[in-house]
């Protein structure tokens, strides 16, 4: 159940980036298939940790990039079905160049009225 540990780590990072007294609305993450995260389990763990924090409505938006391999011989780069796929040139040692990402991309927060009035010009809702 490493999704729970990951959700807790994620929340720790989010809290360090939250403006004072803000409420979390959503978090966007990118998790590559290498990390073996099961989306349903991750959502369940997320719901648990944000509810305990007092943000039960906070959504988790997961972007799952594909595996990316590159052949060191012919330099071909492709998205394999499985990580052990061989290059079409026959070379056996494809290098992993994508699929191991584990990033918090952004957070959507609601500022309290007094903070909102003082907030400098940051990105408006949904726009980075």
């Amino acid at each position: 159940m490493h999704e729970m540990s990951i959700a807790m780590e994620l929340l720790t990072l989010i809290e360090s980036r939250m403006p004072p007294h803000a409420t979390l609305e959503a978090a966007q993450v990118r998790i590559g298939p290498m990390h073996g995260v099961v989306a349903e389990a991750m959502q369940w763990a997320w719901r648990t940790v944000v509810s305990e924090k007092g943000w039960p409505q906070a959504r988790l938006l997961i972007d799952t990039p594909p595996w990316q391999l590159q052949c060191p011989a012919c330099r071909r780069q492709w998205q394999p079905q499985t990580i052990d796929e061989l290059c079409t040139c026959g070379h056996l040692e494809a290098k992993l160049v994508g699929g191991d990402e584990f990033l918090l991309l952004s957070i959507d927060v609601v500022l309290p009225p007094d903070n909102a009035a003082q907030q400098p010009a940051m990105s408006s809702t949904g726009v980075l």
């Binding site: 980036r17 993450v29 998790i31 918090l104 957070i107 927060v109 500022l111 907030q119 990105s123 408006s124």
Partner: peptide, 11 residues
């Protein structure tokens, strides 16, 4: 007021 805060950090 709702805002988006870019982060892009390792979880």
């Amino acid at each position: 007021m709702s805002i988006t805060v870019p982060v892009v950090e390792n979880v």
